[in-house]
Computed example of a mutant assay.
Amino acid sequence: MNLEDMPQASLNAVKAKDRAGWLALFEDDALVQDPVGPCEWDPEGVGQQGKEAIGRFYDMFMGFQDSLDYEIHHQVVRGNEAAVALTLHIMMKDGTKQESRAINIYKASENGKIASLRSFW
Rank of each mutant, 00 (worst) to 15 (best):
A9C: 13
A20D: 12
E40T: 15
F120Y: 13
W22Y: 15
N104L: 02
L117E: 01
L23E: 01
V77F: 01
N111I: 00
V76E: 03
W22N: 09
P35D: 06
A102Q: 10
K107G: 11
V77L: 03
L31R: 03
V36S: 07
R56A: 11
N12V: 04
A30V: 08
G50M: 12
E99Q: 14
D42Q: 11
T87V: 07
F64G: 10
S67C: 09
G45I: 07
T87C: 06
V77S: 09
F57V: 00
G37F: 09
A85G: 03
K97Y: 08
L117S: 02
E71M: 04
M60N: 13
M92R: 14
S116T: 04
H74D: 10
E4F: 13
D42I: 09
D18M: 10
L31S: 02
A9F: 10
M1V: 10
A20Q: 13
V46E: 11
G47A: 12
E52S: 14
G21D: 05
F64P: 00
K93C: 05
Y58T: 01
Q65Y: 04
G47D: 04
G63N: 03
H74V: 05
I72T: 04
A13W: 00
G21Y: 06
I72S: 04
L117C: 07
A83C: 12
E110T: 07
W121N: 12
G45F: 11
D59Y: 07
L88W: 01
V32G: 00
M6K: 07
F61G: 06
L31F: 03
A13S: 05
